[in-house]
Design a protein around this nucleic acid. Sequence first.
DNA 1: GATCATGAATACACCTGGTATAGTAATATT
DNA 2: AATATTACTATACCAGGTGTATTCATGATC
Lengths: 216, 216
Amino acid sequence: MIRMHYARGVVEEPGRRERKKQQTRRALIETAARLFGERGYDATSVADVAEAADVTKRTFFLHFATKEDVLLSDGPARVELALRVIGEQAPQAPLREVLAEAVHAMIADTASGDLPNGMAALRARLMVDSPAVQARVLRAVFTAQARIAEALRGAYPETLDRVTAAGVVGAVVGAVCAAAIASLENGEGPEAVSEAMRRAAAIALHTVDALGAESD
Amino acid sequence: MIRMHYARGVVEEPGRRERKKQQTRRALIETAARLFGERGYDATSVADVAEAADVTKRTFFLHFATKEDVLLSDGPARVELALRVIGEQAPQAPLREVLAEAVHAMIADTASGDLPNGMAALRARLMVDSPAVQARVLRAVFTAQARIAEALRGAYPETLDRVTAAGVVGAVVGAVCAAAIASLENGEGPEAVSEAMRRAAAIALHTVDALGAESD
DNA sequence: GATCATGAATACACCTGGTATAGTAATATT
DNA sequence: AATATTACTATACCAGGTGTATTCATGATC
């Protein structure tokens, strides 16, 4: 039987075990980020990371499903952010504005909330020369995109069916991603990259206006 | 010294060696497609495919860089198709129409030109339940998208800079892909999927009209 | 036609990502 | 204090992927 009703206050304080777990997790993330940054992604094996973090390779895979996943630890939070924005403004505000808000929030979060460990920046760097990372990140983006699309469809069931919602969100996210990568490959700095993402979002958001009238 | 001036006619006929190479390549593709279809992707090892095609595992990797790549053999042709469409209609026709033509050509090719081996259909099926396939396909799409964007930028240098081109193409491709997957996950048939892709493309193509005026 | 160079395929060893299993020790619950 | 969880370890294993030396058919040259 599962019972978790220890009344440690309103919010459940983690307890020593959970704290230690998060500690190893953080150690793995930071160690991985450091080694990937120093030696490159491919030149760093999971065994190296585990060794440097003083745990076994097995432990690494108890925390992360794949080697790439250690780079995606901040992904879920960003998706939750977007979903929260949608949940708050949802059916009252017009679709276009809600989607715009959500995307802008994610872009801003990527740019500003990244200072502590620089994970997004590192990920961007590694994406350029590691196909595996690129593929995994794209898949993560795609999954996130699908969740956002479902949330939007739920909020505007009369305007959006499942496929249309996916299409619209796909357009915006696709534009933002492609612009970001292009900007990165252009060698532009974080400032310019963010600007490129915002511009791409603004342009792609016009798809929303086109929802009713499809010529062709 | 390298000399390849055997005059076998205007077009270079392949010769026995090259033909045998292509033969093993085809055998690997067909065998892989069959086994993946029968047992599923993850349940089929590269060794299995090689064995069934009567070659060594090493030979498989001389033809394909990764296990996933054997599913992408028809990808390059589809990209070339789009580039050809762009190259033919390029700067004369308006950007919107050229992009529309290119995308429609790719969609049509996916739907109709797929009968011989059903590779696109198989790929779509396998994407749904194999993360590795999904990731690799997304990466392939992303790469293709970058090439198309570059071609467009070359054709309309005054309208498009690098980042904008990437954004526009990213929007259209992103919309089409997302719609296709959503439709597939909806359990819709090939007919409906194609229709979903066309609709998504039509909607996303409105981004092109928004190129001049960006109201943030 | 004999000879030589090329390159597709082989055989074999090896590394790394990822998993299964059984076990240990610290932590949480009663 | 006794018991149940559970993060972590140790170890062996599988599959994807690569390096290297070798074989052998093919294509070029004489």
